[in-house]
């Protein structure tokens, strides 16, 4: 089934409650996720991400529409046999050790291989604590055990809901590498939901953004970031003269940044126009002190998309 999407949803909807108190958590979601990539699933709190993931994992029945994994509806017996999931934070039997928790889960799936459990515990850095009760684990350790649990059956598709929750910066970096490794070295498809947009930007090939249960954007990360123009930020003197000159050709605004003695001029122009802008200012006898290209980030894109505003500007980088 090389051409069958790993995940496909068709008009997937979920409504909780009835009568006047119903809430539509997911509304007509159409999603098609190809194999061999890391796919980010983004949305603000309450957007319907976890409800969608729960429907994909057959934990919640859709009110309408269908969800397919590897071409089979998730409710079919065995449809989730090649899927591993970490849904909404880790949960384990606190009185059992990490190793025993994994054994219970592996046996539940009728796929108990002791050597695989030891191998996974080593991969997620829990081998040394494998025999200790999970109640003594930190949140980060439980999170890593959750990822090990998701990988127990050597799944083709790994669904991770907030996999870096509770991890320290080093742990986040390690997890990012681990997730990338799953795709590049082991050919897994990873579907990841996260609030950490910087992490998603660095980890994912494609993203979908949902809001109020509906998809509002979908595409390759690079493509989405390229969708909205970047800006140039300029420090020049004399400021008023520079402002007046630039206004002749570009849309500009003034921005004061705490700690900076001189205000910045924000020019709505793509990075490739920066030599032109500098040349233009110099031609008007204006001294240019700094030109900075403001790159669009996934975070700013996400905020703009979910607020229904034009994409804003985020992280700055020297040009």
């Amino acid at each position: 089934m090389p051409n069958t999407p790993a995940i496909r949803t068709e008009n997937l909807s979920k409504t909780f409650g009835k009568g006047k108190t119903f809430i539509t958590a997911v509304k007509g979601l159409n999603l098609e996720v190809a194999r061999g990539q890391v796919y980010g699933f983004l949305g603000p709190n309450g957007a319907g991400k976890t409800t969608t993931i729960r429907m994909l994992m057959d934990l919640i029945r859709p009110s309408a529409g269908r969800a397919e994994i590897n071409g089979r509806t998730v409710r079919e017996a065995g449809a989730l046999a090649r899927v591993g999931g970490l849904v909404e934070g880790p949960a384990f039997y606190g009185y059992l050790s990490g190793r025993n928790n994994l054994e219970v889960l592996a046996r539940t799936a009728d796929d108990y291989r002791p050597e695989r459990i030891l191998n996974l515990l080593e991969q997620v850095g829990l081998a040394a604590r494998a025999g200790q009760p999970v109640s003594s684990y930190s949140l980060g350790m439980k999170q890593r055990l959750g990822v090990a649990a998701a990988l127990l059956g050597d799944p083709d598709l790994v669904v991770l809901d907030e996999p870096t929750n509770g991890l320290d910066p080093a742990g986040i970096q390690e997890m990012r590498g681990f997730i990338r490794g799953l795709v590049r070295e082991r050919g897994k498809m990873v579907f990841i939901s996260s609030h950490l947009l910087n992490e998603v930007e660095q980890t994912c090939d494609r993203v979908a953004i949902i809001q109020k249960g509906e998809m509002i954007r979908e595409g390759p990360v690079a493509g989405l970031l390229a969708e909205s123009a970047s800006n140039l930020r300029i420090q020049a003197a004399p400021l008023e003269q520079a402002e007046q000159a630039l206004r002749e050709r570009w849309k500009i605004s003034r921005e004061s940044i705490p700690g900076d003695a001189v205000p910045w001029l924000v020019v709505e122009a793509p990075p490739e126009e920066s030599p032109l802008v500098v040349e233009f200012l110099v031609g008007h006898g204006i001294r240019v002190h700094q030109v900075v290209v403001q790159r669009q980030t996934l975070e700013s894109y996400f905020l703009a998309a979910t607020r229904d505003l034009p994409a804003g500007i985020g992280e700055a980088a020297d040009d």
Binding site: D58, L59, G85, A91, T108, A109, D110
Partner: peptide, 17 residues
């Protein structure tokens, strides 16, 4: 209460659990 159904249900059929 332990929140374990979310790990168990995708692994086997509900009636068997």
């Amino acid at each position: 209460q332990s929140g374990m159904w979310k790990y168990l249900i995708p692994r086997n059929r509900r009636p068997l659990l």
